[in-house]
Write a protein that binds this DNA or RNA. Sequence first.
DNA 1: GACCCTAGCTAAACCGGTTTATCTCCGGCT
DNA 2: AGCCGGAGATAAACCGGTTTAGCTAGGGTC
Lengths: 337, 337
Amino acid sequence: MKRPTIKDIAAAAGVSKGAVSLALNGRSGVSEQTRARVLAVASSLGYRPSVTARALSSASADAVGLVLVRPPRALGDEAFFFQLIAGMQSAMSSALLLQVVESREAEIELYRRWWAEHRVDGVFLVDLLVSDPRVELMSSLGLPAVVVGGAGHHGELASVWADDYAAMTSVVEYLKSLGHRRIARIAGLGSLLHTVRRDEAFASSVVDGGASGGVDGVVVYGDYSAESGAAATRELLSRGDRPTAIVYDNDVMAVAGVEVASSLGVAVPAELSIVAWDDSVLCQHGRLTALSRDTFAFGARAARALLAVVGGALPTDVEDVLPELVVRGSSGGAPGA
Amino acid sequence: MKRPTIKDIAAAAGVSKGAVSLALNGRSGVSEQTRARVLAVASSLGYRPSVTARALSSASADAVGLVLVRPPRALGDEAFFFQLIAGMQSAMSSALLLQVVESREAEIELYRRWWAEHRVDGVFLVDLLVSDPRVELMSSLGLPAVVVGGAGHHGELASVWADDYAAMTSVVEYLKSLGHRRIARIAGLGSLLHTVRRDEAFASSVVDGGASGGVDGVVVYGDYSAESGAAATRELLSRGDRPTAIVYDNDVMAVAGVEVASSLGVAVPAELSIVAWDDSVLCQHGRLTALSRDTFAFGARAARALLAVVGGALPTDVEDVLPELVVRGSSGGAPGA
DNA sequence: GACCCTAGCTAAACCGGTTTATCTCCGGCT
DNA sequence: AGCCGGAGATAAACCGGTTTAGCTAGGGTC
């Protein structure tokens, strides 16, 4: 009652192991007649190839990898990643090898190992850094990879990204059009590429003269946690010339910001407009104006891109649809405007 | 510059492959002197064993599995699972093989395959059903497994669980003490074991005479989605004798319930008290009274239990701490009480 | 001195596939 | 008739480990 192996099929079909392998993989070297017989025997025996054995002789591993570098406890609140993972899975029939590690060094070591052992066919690269060493690593290893969320082109790698620059510009323009002249930004980790992109867009559209003239823009950095969002908001709101609008880099920080504002007696949106990046159940329920994108679909797109690269396709850059600003109750005209 | 294999070490240390294997795995059959030499050579060469090859010869696979049966898109909003996964990872050094499938049959097929190929050392079983076929399957396969969240004892399997019965009872008692006499419950999938447990506890404590006497209790089933929570709430609130308190089986449905209540002009908590199961950022920000437990720690505990079973320990049942009711703004005295 | 046991090691089989080298047979061409 | 080429198949090597059978040398026992 053991699961049948290629050897059993060979015996049952009266051919050699090698012939069975060729037949099953649709390669030439066996007659159509033999191939048909082998396939028949295989299916009648309920044969399923062993991914483990196959991986050992340097073929497909039937899995792709994702490594997240985070303090594990902080991860659970980030709905973004889970949405992304769910989306990836929806477009893949293979399994996802997931591991959370503490350091970038451990991450790199893991890639080396997984690839050397053919445990994965390819990997997703998230949280791209400015001049990220992983890009070079993938090329030198020859490990198929897709950069997820890092705008622009990265060496020889495929990437799937959304235009953070344009999105940030649209948010600032929206706020300016409402009469805001002191706009703040509570950013995420400054080491991440997309943070830098957003910084650039923010800086550029803030100083941009245009019809509305330049405005005052200040940036404070957080780490996506509610605590850091609250602290940053508190700092901004306690200034003499406090901003009339704040753009947050994620939903958790934005929600924390709303809390702080209300506890300080600052009315939202009458005295302070709040915009969150990345929509979620949290924003929907909190009625937060948010930059919304379909993270699930984004994940699915990333998975398809990775499968293509694994399949030998030339790496391409896929731009996701532009995040759309969903206006809810947390934003409005500037006070006195 | 290829990664060194056991063969390279053998050559460098001047012994056979077999001796190297014995030495590295701390097994008897080699002298301490030889072992030391082999270990020295191995570390100087930066040797890392190949999990793939090792798995093939029926040893450790250095990974554990988790299969989720869900429509993938619905998954992303369930912070619970991601918290759980993050917690699991925090207590494991091995990777997690994660796959989302559409059907229970596919799930079972996956367990068979993963185990036959030694792709995993063990699996987590979540969303336990009433008389779940997986329990029997694990025993017959001999696949180490831990039941996560299914109260009670399951065949020969280890389990990690929280006392849903006691928790539900405490919620109902709390509501009764506030004067509520018509209490409803919006449950999750009726096929899940923990739903049944909560049903039993709910039914029992609702009819329980005690000091406060019996109360009216009705149960409606949802599927954890915001839509189903909203629909169920709408149904309950449009009844003639609408409940004055509703207990939800998860956070997403509870939050949707708050929305519906306010859209129907039913004041929370003045006219309707709402209690959510499983606390989350969502509940915290929505100021929902919720049954809170540390899902992250729960996941970590489950991981440790699985590692123990994989390591050959006798399966045990570990009871998690009792979920604690965190009272926030969504619950209060019954109207007119 | 014959016998047995054991520690310490080697050679080889094995896990379940893929891949390469080799062998045979058959047909076509000159 | 002799030679070549290719199709179809097989045997064997290989991937990187684990495991078992077997060999050798040394020590203890009677």
